[in-house]
Computed example of a mutant assay.
Amino acid sequence: MASRLLTVPAALLLSLTALSSLAADGTPLGWVERGLILPEQVTVKFKLDTGALTSSMHAEDVDYFEKDGDKWVRFDLDLKDVEHDKLVKSRIERKLQRELTVRGAGGKEDRPVVLMKVCVGDRLLEEEFSLRDRDEMNYPVLLGRRTLEKLGPVDSARTFTIEPNCSELANR
């Protein structure tokens, strides 16, 4: 009986933690939200994809190189900022976390995975993103389940339920 009593408060605590990322009106996040890529401060549409495990971000001209004995990647982040209606171009370098093999209808593809900081609502996250040219996709950033588990529930009937607001956190 005592073990049962301990699990209820733990479950309640976990559910309250997930609720911190609900939209301002108390509803879950939508399947598309505006998010912020840092430190570039570019606002783009993020697709919250429960069918993907790993998050993915648009990247062009990916080059591998070595730095201090570690593998790194350098890539172009060329995105249209939907908040300011301007093109943001950056050349970014990140340490390679791992290689990801993606299998799909078109065959298999190896992608580099790097850590990137993003803001969704009031949550500043540093997450793994596979890099891929997403020019032909509607959404330059896709958030997979590993990231979504930190954000809480997703309502597939809603979009744009929350605005990115991490400016104070991003400067730390």
Rank of each mutant, 00 (worst) to 15 (best):
L5I: 02
L6G: 06
L6T: 11
T7L: 15
P9M: 09
A10H: 04
A10R: 06
L12P: 05
L13R: 11
L13W: 14
L14M: 10
S15H: 12
S15L: 13
L16A: 12
T17D: 06
T17L: 11
T17K: 05
T17A: 00
A18V: 09
L19R: 14
L19Q: 13
S20I: 12
S20V: 13
S20M: 13
S21F: 06
G26R: 05
G26N: 02
G26M: 04
L29F: 01
G30M: 00
G30S: 02
G30P: 00
G30T: 05
W31A: 01
E33M: 05
E33P: 00
R34G: 00
R34E: 11
R34F: 11
L36E: 00
L36F: 03
L36C: 06
L36I: 08
E40R: 04
Q41W: 06
V44K: 03
V44T: 07
K45V: 13
F46C: 08
K47C: 06
K47P: 01
G51H: 10
L53F: 09
S55Q: 10
S56M: 06
S56V: 12
H58Y: 12
V62P: 02
D63L: 13
D63N: 10
D63Y: 08
Y64K: 02
Y64W: 11
F65I: 02
E66V: 11
E66T: 14
K67M: 11
D68K: 15
D68N: 15
G69H: 06
D70G: 10
K71W: 07
K71C: 01
K71A: 13
W72V: 08
V73L: 13
R74K: 09
R74F: 02
D76K: 11
L77M: 15
L79A: 08
L79I: 15
K80Q: 13
D81E: 03
V82L: 07
E83T: 14
H84F: 14
K86L: 11
L87G: 05
I92W: 00
E93P: 12
L96R: 04
L96N: 04
Q97P: 02
E99T: 12
E99Q: 08
R103A: 09
G104Y: 07
A105V: 14
G107Y: 10
K108P: 00
E109G: 10
E109A: 12
E109I: 08
D110C: 00
D110I: 05
D110F: 02
R111L: 14
R111H: 15
R111A: 04
V113N: 01
V114D: 04
V120P: 00
G121D: 03
D122K: 15
D122E: 08
L125I: 04
E127S: 10
E127T: 15
F129P: 00
F129D: 06
F129M: 15
L131T: 08
L131C: 09
R132F: 07
D135L: 02
D135C: 10
E136G: 12
M137E: 04
L143V: 04
R145S: 12
L148D: 03
E149W: 04
L151F: 06
P153D: 07
P153I: 12
P153Q: 13
V154T: 13
S156D: 07
A157M: 14
R158G: 14
F160K: 04
E163F: 09
P164C: 10
P164D: 11
N165T: 03
C166W: 03
C166Y: 02
E168Y: 02
E168N: 06
A170K: 07
N171Y: 05
N171K: 15
N171L: 01
R172I: 10
R172L: 15
